[in-house]
């Protein structure tokens, strides 16, 4: 068989692989669904303001075997990306962030950047089980990244999802607040700087439990 005959046959046989396909779909973000809400500690919280500054949403594929070593980069390669910065009112209606650009395949985790001065603002009143009311104003300056937010989806470029919903839960952000903290400066407003040990709002802000990513068909 001639070389000129063999080469095209080989090319046909061996070129059957499909490259990963690109796709995109809209992203919306939403915050509070109930206001006021009652936490597990039976504290009722009425929010007057709730906002957060988020940037650069990325979704990652499952980790490859080479990267599964403990303490190592446990996330897979970035498969979806929506670059930008958004100040989200968590008490408002869902807000459109734009279209996320993706490569098809399985997703496992999501991450986003928190950077701003301040990056989070939560203002309102908490009513404790003994009916004591405590006004609060938490404003947090942060330069961090939320990583490892669980995502379950397999993207197919032939049937792209309808949308990605990023849900931020102020209730979870505030779930670790010690409402009995001292009002150190005596201004009747609980802030990050009250009491000796401050409080745990920052933990709630960076906790992956405060964020939910859902991809809908």
């Amino acid at each position: 068989m001639r070389l000129t005959t063999i080469a095209p046959i080989l090319l046909l046989v061996a070129c059957a692989h499909e490259q990963r396909q690109a796709l995109s779909f809209p992203v919306i973000a939403l915050g509070m669904v109930e206001n006021p809400f009652v936490g597990e500690d039976q504290v009722e919280v009425q929010l007057d303001e709730a906002w957060i500054v988020l940037a650069d949403l990325r979704l990652e594929a499952p980790a490859s075997p080479a990267a599964k070593h403990p303490g190592h980069d446990f996330s897979g390669a970035t498969s979806c990306e929506l670059l930008g910065s958004w100040e989200l009112n968590l008490l408002a209606d869902p807000q459109a962030l734009g279209d996320v650009a993706c490569l098809d395949g399985e997703l496992a985790t999501g991450r986003m950047v928190l950077t701003g001065d301040p990056v989070v603002g939560l203002v309102g009143t908490a009513t404790l089980p003994d009916s004591t009311q405590r006004a609060f104003r938490f404003e947090l300056v942060l330069d961090d990244e939320i990583t490892g937010v669980p995502v379950e989806a397999i993207l197919d470029a032939e049937a792209p999802p309808a949308q990605l919903v990023l849900e931020i839960s102020p209730a979870t952000v505030l779930a670790w607040v010690d409402w009995d903290s001292l009002d150190s400066d005596g201004d009747d407003v609980l802030t990050l700087y009250d009491d000796l040990l401050g409080n745990t709002v920052p933990f709630g802000v960076v906790s992956t439990a405060s964020y939910t990513i859902t991809i809908t068909e």
């Binding site: 061996a14 692989h17 490259q19 390669a77 498969s79 490569l103 395949g105």
Partner: peptide, 15 residues
């Protein structure tokens, strides 16, 4: 002749 090679992240090279 070099056929397509599997690349990281699910990509394949060209032949």
């Amino acid at each position: 002749f070099l056929g397509p090679r599997p690349l990281p992240d699910g990509f394949y090279s060209r032949s």
